[in-house]
Simulated scan of single mutants.
Amino acid sequence: MPMRRVALIAALIFVIDQITKIAVVFGLNLKDRGEIDVIPPLLNFRMAWNQGVNFGLFASGAEIVRWVLVILSLVIVGWVWVWISRGRHSDWMRLSAGVLIGGALGNVVDRVAYGAVADFLNMSCCGFENPYAFNVADIAIFAGAAGLVLFSGEGGQGGAKRRKPRRKTP
């Protein structure tokens, strides 16, 4: 899979993330309504402006934290891009990298534009009430990171085919 496809996958994830945020947060006015039951308790929209990382960790409200998270996200995106483009990695690794990059950039745009990440998806089931909200970018970041780990193959070659060592003949 060429890097152009990785970029297209990242762009697709980014666009899906931004469209869903605009449609739900602003189109359905979730930012003012606070919550909308869609298919309770399985799927609900619950507005949460996340100033920290996952589950609001490190959320202090300080402007410096916002920009540190933006810079950190961009550094990680850049590192993943360079790493995946320089090595011999499987198509699944490249797909995973594109998904992760698209999700990370989606949340970066939120931090720059709104000062926090717009989280709105809430899912509960079977007597367990989930207090947290997330978004499409969060799903993509998790899935992309999991894919990078799962498809990394032996020796960090990312599933690339290896040559068998030649036998020495006397």
Rank of each mutant, 00 (worst) to 15 (best):
Arg94Phe: 04
Val38Asn: 05
Arg167Ala: 13
Gly56Cys: 05
Lys21Asn: 07
Trp81Gly: 00
Gly102Ile: 01
Arg163Val: 11
Gly52Thr: 08
Arg167Leu: 11
Ala116Ile: 03
Asn107His: 12
Tyr132Ser: 07
Ala146His: 06
Lys164Tyr: 10
Ala97Gly: 03
Pro165Cys: 02
Ala116Met: 15
Val136Arg: 00
Arg94His: 06
Asp32Tyr: 08
Pro40Met: 01
Pro40Cys: 08
Asp138Ser: 05
Leu95Ala: 04
Gly78Phe: 04
Asn44Arg: 07
Val117His: 05
Phe58Lys: 14
Asn50Ala: 09
Gly127Pro: 11
Arg46His: 14
Cys126Leu: 07
Ile139Pro: 01
Gly147Leu: 00
Val108Asn: 06
Ile64His: 15
Gly115Phe: 07
Leu148Met: 14
Lys21Gly: 04
Ile71Glu: 02
Pro41Tyr: 08
Tyr114Asp: 04
Ala62Trp: 09
Ile76Cys: 10
Ala59Met: 08
Pro40Lys: 15
Asn50Arg: 13
Trp67Asn: 14
Asn50Asp: 14
Leu95Asn: 02
Ile19Trp: 11
Gly87Phe: 14
Leu12Ala: 15
Pro170Cys: 10
Val15Pro: 09
Ile141Gln: 01
Ala160Pro: 12
Asn44Cys: 02
Ile71Asp: 13
Arg86Thr: 01
Gly61Ile: 06
Ile39Gly: 10
Arg88Cys: 10
Gly56Trp: 06
Ile36Arg: 06
Gly158Val: 00
Asp32Asn: 14
Val24Gly: 12
Gly159Ser: 10
Val108Asp: 03
Leu42Asp: 05
Gly159Pro: 05
Ile39Met: 11
Asp32Gln: 15
Ile71Val: 13
Leu43Lys: 04
Gly27Leu: 10
Glu129Ala: 05
Pro2Asp: 07
Arg163Asp: 15
Gly56Gln: 12
Gly27Tyr: 12
Asp37Asn: 15
Arg88Glu: 15
Pro165Arg: 02
Cys126Arg: 12
Arg163Cys: 07
Pro40Asp: 09
Ala104Gly: 00
Phe128Pro: 00
Leu100Asp: 01
Phe151Leu: 06
Lys161Phe: 15
Ala140Trp: 04
Met123His: 09
Leu28Asn: 04
Asp91Glu: 15
Ser73His: 06
Leu100Gln: 00
Asp37Met: 14
Ala146Phe: 02
Met47Phe: 14
Phe120His: 07
Asp32Arg: 12
Ala10Glu: 06
Cys126Met: 10
Ser85Phe: 06
Arg5Asn: 09
Gln18Lys: 03
Met93Val: 07
